[in-house]
Nucleic acid binder design. Structure first.
Lengths: 197, 197
DNA sequence: TGTACATCAGTGAACGCGCGTTCACTGATGTAC
DNA sequence: TGTACATCAGTGAACGCGCGTTCACTGATGTAC
């Protein structure tokens, strides 16, 4: 029957997810509090548990959005461009860096320990990650046409991890604090050197 | 005057640091609890605060040890070997990977968010990191003799971050769960390609 | 060396706080007739 | 359409727990004479 009640539920879910996203974006995942959320959307604390099993599920809803935005950003960066495979990798990495830079806290939430320590990563998480890897894998197999799938997979992970590592430590102001354009240079240098046979 | 009292204090510091290290190694930083520590070393909870300002300071003491062990491991790996600069980088990375693999939780504690979010990273931390970078910088300047210091510094950070990223995601079982020898291959592939002009 | 006093390490119960989650209750929405 | 009843969303005070840190107290160690 959906209607009214059902709609209210969905609106609440939506509002809570928006509120949670806003908190994550501005203050990080750790700043998510039931009472704040309730205050923000104008519902009671208990109501949250009517539409989400617990706060972690709510955080995961936000992470899902973030992941989709990230995937879209990286995919869009390539769109329509006639770049060489090498250039494609650099473009995607640039998009990744930019996304991480513009959405640092939301991006960090994706890799937050609580999620990755407590329990199994949900299916859609891995699927989303797989989609990202597939995007990277294409130019790689163009660059190394005689490699088999295993080699390509390995290199895909390696490149993703490398870029991720550079972005991660680069954006960690307290430890290194490298300006973004320098991070970009590092990535380009690493990728160019790796992919130039 | 030092003597007796002073010695007791130092013993307690030592014992507490050992206990904390043991907890971190087996259960991770987040598992550090004042009551557990007191139980382990056979002192009262309050006594901890007599020799450490707070638990964070104690964790930092353990992190200091870990950092020194890590530095020594990486330095030792090179010791006496007549490897080419390229090989040296791969050897150091291998040592880094092995250390991270054998001491995953202690190694993770080094990069734990609480430390890096709450406040400034202490001086010795940066000094220790600088020493590690210096170790990496040497073979790099041998490989790229015509580069200036800035370029070398940049590449040093880039390589360290890359390797760190590969190790990080590789060891994150819940996300990727790559066998260690595969991680090693990734690192070697990346480094070889980067450093082969 | 012995005694009196002062210091400060050591104690652990209690404070205080944060916060996720529950639960008995209420009132609006939906259903049956 | 109107009435009676059932359901379940919504409420928010209270529960419960974990845990870092404190603090009034005690007793051992060190000092002065």
């Amino acid at each position: 029957m959906a209607s009214k009640t059902e709609k209210r539920r969905e609106d609440l879910r939506e509002n809570l997810t928006n509120a949670a996203e806003q908190i994550i974006v501005t203050h990080g995942v750790r700043a998510i509090k039931a009472r704040d959320l309730a205050g923000m959307v104008g519902c009671s604390v208990g109501a949250i548990y009517n539409v989400f099993h617990d706060l972690n599920e709510l955080v995961m809803a936000v992470n899902g959005r973030t992941f989709r935005r990230l995937g879209a950003t990286v995919a869009d960066a390539l769109d329509g461009s006639e770049a060489t495979p090498q250039e494609q990798l650099i473009i995607m990495s640039g998009a990744y860096l930019e996304f991480a830079h513009e959405n640092t806290l939301a991006w960090r939430a994706l890799f937050d320990l609580k999620m990755s320590t407590d329990m199994a990563v949900p299916q859609w998480y891995l699927r989303e990650l797989g989609a990202l890897f597939a995007l990277i894998g294409k130019p790689i197999s163009a660059i190394f046409p005689d490699w088999d799938q295993d080699q390509i997979d390995l290199m895909t992970r390696a490149l993703f991890s490398s870029v991720h590592g550079i972005v991660l430590l680069g954006l960690e102001k307290r430890i290194s604090g490298v300006p973004v354009d320098q991070i970009e240079k590092m990535i380009a240098a690493v990728l160019t050197n790796i992919t130039t046979q």
